[in-house]
Amino acid sequence: MREFDYYRAGSVRDAAKRLAASGNAMLLAGGMTLLPALKMRLNEPSELIDLGGIDELKGVKLSRKGAHIGATTTHVEVAGNVELRAAIPVISQAAESIGDPQVRNRGTLGGSVANNDPAADYPAVALGLGATIITNKRKISADSFFVGLFETALGTGEMVTEVLFPLPQRAGYAKFPNPATRYALVGVCVAQFKSGVRVAVTGAGPSVYRLEDFEEALEGDFSSDALDGLSVSAANLNDDMHASAEYRAHLVGVMARRAVAMALD
């Protein structure tokens, strides 16, 4: 790694001020993606602002609006929260499917959504549930937040502080993990609300996205049979050494059916 300055922030205000003041600083949460990226010199920040000491960014709270999860809450804390598992089990199931135990002990929700890896699990759950990403400046709907490959709507000096997941009637997340990394080759989150059904796909395209024709079919009949006859085009899907675009297109249908079955279970 190239040298950088290290700063341990004491509060969200402190971190945001520091971030805004420096042209090339980056935020460090769990570091599970950032530190490997620094080793490969994919990023060369002048300073890392460590959020690890900020208590106000940690924790899970339930309210009538849904589940409020602080940005630096780790995957293991999310997976182990009993009230959350009872209220919105799909979040817990996605959290416990990430990486391996050591990654789950360090990696954070905020880090995952802010990074927007095209194969990450949390973006699918956030988009599938129609979550609200709360920053130090504003509230952003998941539909507007995930912009493209490793790209989000976050602006300069802006940081994720919390994600609010609304309470679905039922939901499921199924993924076909890459056997080496446990990232999703394809992962699909399906969620049913009074207002309609949402289907979000990760791993298949350059960024997480919604599948409108699946949503319409499931709104008419929330069962995996409702997806019969629907096919997914391989055009513009990821194509690499791990899976072809055609195979990923096939997996989208398979994982969507599994996610519906999990939601109905």
């Binding site: 599970m32 490997p36 890392l48 050591q102």
Partner: peptide
């Protein structure tokens, strides 16, 4: 690269990969 686990230690009682912590 935080894959192999040869560097696992405990930090505050939880196992972590010490090659991926500063």
């Amino acid at each position: 690269t935080s894959q192999c686990g040869a560097c696992v230690v405990h930090v505050d009682g939880a196992s972590v990969k010490s090659c991926t912590m500063l």
